[in-house]
């Protein structure tokens, strides 16, 4: 029983990181209907640059974390300017945008290899002071709690921002109908660039949290989360932010529960992807999707 409770708690922690990663993914999809396959590379660069800031520049993690997040946001602007903006008026922008984002991912991967080397790195010990709590036989560290709090806070801020602020409303208008937004005087290309900034900043933040949680970062760590991120946004419904959060938690829980029930880690991803497959056939718009089936 304790083991199960422990697994559930662990699933919650890792699920919140998946959620944060997927929220950035789904934000761009919701606005542009395009998958940004460079998102995982931004996630990697965010995490690695935070390690560099702590280790080489000697910053505290509290300064390095926001800086790495901003840097990741800057990469998002770069992705938009180089890979998406020039293709926007093209008829097959869905396919070609996919490929140009893959090209950006390759370039970012090369940058990660060149700047930080191929070996896996970790935050220096003592970057975050870790307390360990035992609650009813379940071990929880202050690091885990901090990760969930930061992830939740960022997702909460994003939701409020999209609901309440003027820019947030403009983003939703562009997502709904680009042409109408333009007629209403919304600066569409500016809003799209800003969406990329937020999306990538969240991806970078997820990279830092992931690195702190697993205590290991490598240039290929984006590959592990890329597919999971895609699965999460489908599970939650493409373009739906609460869906991505919920999907992230569900995916994290399903991972640990599969391990707990089957006793091995071999089938961890199999269950998740089988569920994903079934959801696509039965309810393609996802758990909280907008019910949009036809691709324009």
């Amino acid at each position: 029983m304790n083991l199960l409770a422990q697994q559930l708690v662990n699933g919650l922690f890792i699920g919140s990181v998946y959620g944060l990663f997927a929220v950035g993914y789904t934000l761009v999809f919701g606005v542009l209907d395009i998958l940004n396959l460079a998102h995982a590379a931004v996630f990697t660069l965010g995490g690695l640059s935070a390690v560099w800031l702590v280790q080489a520049a000697g910053m505290s993690i509290w300064l390095a974390f926001p800086l790495a997040t901003l840097l990741a946001g800057g990469l998002g602007l770069l992705i938009n300017a180089a890979a998406f903006a020039p293709l926007r008026r093209r008829a097959d922008s869905q396919f070609s945008g996919l490929i140009s984002s893959i090209a950006m991912a390759i370039i970012f991967d090369a940058a990660a290899l060149g700047l930080f080397g191929a070996r896996s790195v970790r935050f220096p010990p003592g970057t975050v002071k870790v307390h360990v709590w035992q609650i009813a036989g379940v071990t929880i560290t202050s690091l885990q709690v901090g990760i969930v709090l930061v992830a939740t806070l960022l997702m909460l801020i994003l939701t409020l921002f999209l609901q309440r602020s003027r820019t947030g409303k403009a983003i939703r208008t562009v997502a709904e109908n680009e042409r109408a937004a333009m007629l209403l005087g919304v600066n569409v290309s500016g809003i799209i660039a800003f969406t990329f900034f937020i999306s990538s900043a969240l991806g970078g933040a997820a990279g830092v949290l992931y690195g702190l949680y697993f205590d290991s970062l490598a240039p290929d760590m984006g590959r592990a989360i890329e597919l999971k991120g895609l699965a999460v946004i489908i599970l939650g419904g493409m373009g739906s932010i609460p869906g991505a959060i919920l999907g992230g938690l569900a995916f994290g829980l399903s991972e640990v529960l599969t391990v707990a029930v089957s006793g091995t880690s071999n089938l961890r991803d199999a269950v998740a992807f089988t569920v994903l497959f079934a959801i696509l056939l039965l309810r393609p718009s996802g758990l909280l999707g907008r019910g949009k089936l036809r691709e324009a």
């Binding site: 209907d33 998958l35 895609l230 199999a270 497959f277 696509l280 056939l281 089936l293 691709e295």
Partner: peptide, 24 residues
């Protein structure tokens, strides 16, 4: 029956299941 990105995702999930089956 699925279109666009949804078809891509379904075939992607199928691919992962095949890969995991081959591993196990």
């Amino acid at each position: 029956r699925l279109k666009g990105v949804f078809l891509a995702m379904a075939t992607l999930a199928f691919g992962e299941v095949v890969r995991i089956a081959a591993v196990n």
